[in-house]
């Protein structure tokens, strides 16, 4: 199975976007599904910490670098549980992301969620491309000078 078909990889790709979308973008996506089916919140949004790890030398044994704030939430829509974990203290964003995760798991709703998030993906891709182009403009080629010792 390629990663395009792998449901876990596709859900991870969704979560990657949800973690980066702002409140207005998430709400705009949810708005396509109003009225929402009855919603239960088995885990209301909660902020906590995740220990971020690095590796010695970049590729060796792990070590603890420091913590980051993370907000998580879980909601239930029609018996489907949507889960979100994202960096920062953002209960509303976490709740909205969990709702979209739940909606996305319904095969009928999935294309609508994907379509609703397309502008977010576009914004993120454009911002990343612009940042990368500006960094690219600082690419440097140093020349080693002859020292004229002869």
């Amino acid at each position: 199975m390629t990663s395009a078909e792998d449901p876990v990889q596709r859900r991870k790709a969704l979560m990657q976007v949800l973690a980066r979308a702002d409140q207005a973008e998430l709400e705009a996506a949810i708005d396509r599904f109003t009225p929402l089916p009855p919603l239960r919140e088995p885990r209301p949004a909660e902020t906590g910490l995740v220990m971020v790890r690095g590796r010695i030398g970049g590729d060796g044994a792990p070590f603890n670098l420091g913590e980051a704030t993370v907000t998580r939430a879980a909601v239930q829509l029609n018996d489907v549980t949507g889960v979100s974990y994202l960096l920062g203290r953002a209960p509303e964003r976490a709740r909205a992301a969990a709702i979209l995760d739940a909606l996305w798991q319904d095969p009928a709703a999935q294309p609508v969620v994907e379509e609703a998030l397309a502008p977010v993906r576009r914004r993120l891709a454009e911002a990343a491309a612009e940042a990368a182009a500006k960094v690219e403009a600082t690419r440097v080629n140093f020349f080693t000078m002859a020292r004229g010792e002869d």
Binding site: Q16, V17, R121, L124, A125, A128, A129, A132, A133, E136
Partner: peptide
């Protein structure tokens, strides 16, 4: 200033940040 040619780095970075 931004680099004019679409650099390899930027395409990679873009697809990474967007996830897709």
């Amino acid at each position: 200033p931004a680099a004019k040619a679409t650099p390899k780095v930027s395409a990679k970075a873009a697809s990474k940040a967007a996830g897709k």
